[in-house]
């Protein structure tokens, strides 16, 4: 199902017509509903319950967030997303930064439908593209945990390490004009 959809989407996108774009957006919104159900987020720099509450309240303002629960001793949060909304990881990072901190780990629970993956395999979710980085070839089916590896989602040290080996798309986080997230398992 998923590869047929991707194939269709890329064909439509190639035509670059308004109608095509509209169709693509419509298809996209239909297909991607409820694919990201949950996230485990680790935040760096948190030092007090007041800071943690501020972070939690900032993330809660995002319209795709249904619920956020803190683990007060570990600086981790478990976020549940709304079923009918597209999850935007960049907006999560922006809210955490606004509260004065930064994300050091973001693990999303994504529901796959028999997707064959290998290093570099990409799929589209919302308006963004997700590409697998440093993974072994396998087939993903059902709810699977994926870790976002881009800048602002990993520690500064990890980013440096990955950027030194990664390609252009990892360093810029973009593929053409499209946001390109890099993910691991």
């Amino acid at each position: 199902m998923h590869h047929i959809y991707l194939h269709l989407l890329s064909k439509i996108m190639k035509k670059r017509t308004y109608l095509g774009l509209l169709l693509a957006l419509l298809l996209n919104s239909l297909y991607t509903q409820a694919q990201v159900s949950k996230a485990e987020m680790q935040v760096s720099g948190l030092t007090c319950s007041m800071c943690q509450l501020a972070t939690q309240k900032a993330v809660k303002t995002l319209d795709f967030v249904a619920d956020i629960q803190p683990d007060l001793n570990s600086a981790n949060f478990v976020i549940t997303f709304k079923k009918d909304k597209i999850v935007n990881p960049d907006l999560l990072a922006k809210k955490v930064k606004g509260a004065g901190f930064s994300i050091s780990k973001l693990v999303l629970t994504y529901t796959f439908a028999n997707l064959k993956i290998a290093n570099g395999t990409s799929f589209t979710y919302g308006a963004a593209q997700f590409s697998f980085l440093n993974v072994a070839a396998k087939t993903l089916d059902g709810a699977t945990k994926i870790t976002v590896l881009d800048k602002d989602f990993v520690s500064a040290g990890t980013y440096k390490q990955l950027a030194s080996k990664g390609g252009e798309s990892y360093r810029t986080g973009k593929m053409g004009n499209t946001r390109n997230y890099h993910i691991g398992l």
Partner: peptide
């Protein structure tokens, strides 16, 4: 300036 790591900054 802001250098974060878990539980410290």
């Amino acid at each position: 300036l802001s250098i974060d790591s878990t539980h410290s900054h």
